Lab assay of single mutants.
Amino acid sequence: PDFTLHWNGITIHFKGIDEEQFRHLRELLDRGVSLEELEELAKELIK
């Protein structure tokens, strides 16, 4: 499924991740993950 997340004025689209992965990403963003960390995470998910 696809998810869209609005965070700090940025709209991020996640394609092909499951709800569990999306929930994990939201928790990280709510905790204050940096954009660099988010990019690293995205690379991991894409593999």
Rank of each mutant, 00 (worst) to 15 (best):
L41N: 02
L28T: 05
W7R: 07
L28Q: 08
R26K: 15
W7P: 00
I17Q: 02
L45M: 14
E36I: 12
L29K: 02
E39K: 12
E20Y: 11
R23W: 09
L41T: 05
W7T: 03
K43R: 12
V33T: 13
L35K: 04
V33L: 10
L38M: 05
L5A: 01
F3Y: 13
E27L: 10
D18E: 06
T11Q: 05
L45F: 08
Q21T: 12
H13S: 10
I10P: 00
D30Y: 07
E19P: 05
R26P: 01
G9Q: 02
E27M: 10
K15S: 15
R26Y: 08
R23I: 14
R31Y: 08
I12S: 00
V33K: 07
D18M: 05
E44I: 10
L28Y: 05
W7I: 14
F22Y: 11
H13N: 10
F22Q: 04
E19Y: 07
L35W: 09
L45H: 07
K15I: 15
E39Y: 14
I10G: 02
L41S: 03
R23D: 11
E19F: 06
F3P: 01
W7C: 06
E27T: 12
L45P: 04
F22N: 01
D2E: 14
D30Q: 11
I12N: 00
S34Y: 05
L29I: 10
L5I: 12
I46A: 15
I10N: 06
L45R: 04
T4F: 09
G32P: 02
T11G: 01
N8A: 09
L35N: 03
P1G: 14
L5D: 00
H6Q: 12
Q21W: 08
L29C: 09
L45Q: 05
E20D: 14
R26N: 09
E20K: 11
L29S: 03
I17A: 03
F14C: 06
F3V: 02
D2K: 09
S34T: 12
K15F: 15
I17G: 03
E39G: 08
E20W: 06
L5G: 00
N8H: 07
I12T: 01
A42D: 02
E36L: 12
L35F: 10
L45V: 10
Q21K: 09
R26E: 14
K47L: 06
G9M: 00
G32Y: 07
H13G: 04
L5V: 06
E27K: 10
G32N: 07
I12C: 03
F14T: 04
R31N: 13
N8R: 03
D2C: 13
I46L: 12
K47A: 14
D30N: 11
H6F: 04
L41Q: 04
H24I: 14
K47T: 12
E39C: 04
S34G: 10
I17C: 03
L38P: 00
E44C: 07
H13F: 05
H6Y: 06
A42Q: 03
G32L: 11
R26I: 15
Q21F: 11
D30A: 13
L28N: 04
G9N: 04
L41M: 09
I17P: 02
A42I: 14
F14D: 01
K43M: 08
R31Q: 13
D2Q: 09
L41V: 11
H6D: 09
E19Q: 07
E20L: 10
F14V: 15
D2S: 12
E20H: 15
I12Y: 03
E44A: 12
I46T: 09
V33H: 10
E37S: 07
I10R: 09
F14W: 02
I17N: 02
V33F: 12
Q21Y: 06
G16W: 07
E36M: 12
I46D: 08
K47W: 01
E20R: 07
L25G: 00
E36Q: 13
S34I: 06
L5E: 00
L38R: 00
E37V: 11
E36F: 11
I46C: 06
A42R: 05
H6T: 10
I10F: 02
H13W: 04
L28E: 07
N8K: 06
T11M: 04
G9R: 00
H13P: 00
R23S: 09
L45W: 08
E37I: 14
I12M: 04
L5H: 01
D30P: 02
V33N: 05
F22H: 03
R31P: 02
P1K: 15
L25E: 00
E27I: 08
E27Q: 11
V33M: 13
E19S: 07
S34V: 05
T11I: 08
G9Y: 01
E20M: 09
D2F: 08
G16R: 02
F22C: 03
L45G: 05
T4G: 01
G9H: 02
E37Y: 10
I12P: 00
R26S: 14
L41R: 06
E40D: 12
D30W: 07
L25Q: 00
D18W: 03
G32D: 05
W7G: 02
G16L: 03
L5M: 05
H13Q: 10
L45S: 07
L41W: 15
L28D: 01
E37T: 13
L29T: 02
I17M: 05
S34C: 04
T4I: 10
T11H: 15
E19N: 06
R26T: 15
E27H: 08
P1V: 14
K15R: 07
F14M: 11
H6A: 04
S34P: 12
S34H: 06
H13C: 08
E36T: 13
A42Y: 15
K47E: 11
L41K: 06
R31A: 11
P1D: 10
G16F: 08
I46F: 03
L28M: 13
K15P: 15
D30H: 12
A42N: 04
G9E: 03
D18I: 03
T4K: 09
I46N: 12
I10E: 06
G16K: 03
Q21H: 07
R31E: 08
R31K: 14
E40M: 13
L5P: 00
L45Y: 08
E44Q: 12
L25H: 00
F14A: 04
T4E: 08
H24E: 09
T4M: 05
K15E: 15
D30L: 12
F22S: 04
P1A: 11
G32C: 06
R23E: 13
R23P: 02
L29W: 05
L38C: 04
L5R: 00
E44G: 13
R23M: 14
L28R: 05
D18Q: 04
E19R: 03
F3T: 01
R31H: 11
F22A: 03
E44K: 08
K43Q: 10
E37R: 13
E19W: 05
K43I: 11
E37M: 11
P1Q: 12
K43T: 09
R31G: 10
N8E: 09
K47H: 08
K47I: 11
F22V: 06
H24M: 13
L35I: 12
Q21E: 08
I46R: 07
D30E: 15
H13T: 10
V33W: 12
I10V: 13
R26M: 14
E39D: 07
Q21V: 09
T4Y: 08
E44N: 13
F22M: 09
S34K: 08
V33C: 09
I10T: 08
K43D: 08
N8Q: 10
E20C: 06
V33G: 14
H24Y: 14
D2R: 05
G32I: 11
S34R: 09
E19T: 05
R31V: 10
W7F: 10
L25S: 00
T4A: 03
I10A: 05
L38G: 01
H6W: 02
G9F: 01
A42L: 15
L41D: 01
E37W: 12
E36G: 10
G32W: 09
I12E: 01
E37D: 10
E27V: 08
F22T: 03
E39L: 15
L25W: 03
K43N: 10
R26H: 09
R26D: 02
K47V: 10
H13D: 13
H24N: 10
T11N: 03
L41A: 10
K43F: 07
T4H: 15
I46H: 11
V33Q: 04
G16T: 04
H24Q: 15
W7Y: 09
W7D: 02
S34W: 07
K15M: 14
T11E: 15
L35M: 11
R31M: 14
E27S: 12
P1Y: 15
H6K: 05
K15T: 15
T11P: 02
T4S: 07
T11D: 14
G9P: 00
H13V: 14
Q21N: 09
F22D: 01
N8G: 07
Q21C: 04
F22W: 10
L25N: 00
G32Q: 05
L29P: 00
G32V: 13
L35P: 08
S34D: 07
L38N: 00
L5C: 03
G32S: 06
N8S: 01
N8I: 02
H13A: 05
L38W: 05
K15L: 14
L5K: 00
P1L: 14
T11W: 01
L38S: 00
E40Y: 11
L45A: 08
R23N: 15
F22P: 00
K15G: 15
E40H: 12
E37P: 01
F3A: 01
T11S: 06
N8V: 02
G16N: 13
G16C: 04
E36W: 07
I10C: 07
L5Q: 00
T4W: 03
E20A: 13
K15Y: 15
R26C: 12
F22L: 08
F14Q: 01
R23V: 14
R31C: 08
E20N: 12
R31L: 12
E20T: 11
L5T: 01
E36C: 05
H24G: 09
K47Y: 01
D2V: 15
K15D: 15
P1R: 12
L25C: 02
A42H: 10
D30T: 10
L45E: 02
L25I: 10
F3I: 03
D2G: 14
D2T: 15
W7A: 10
D2Y: 10
E19H: 06
K47G: 12
L41P: 01
E44F: 02
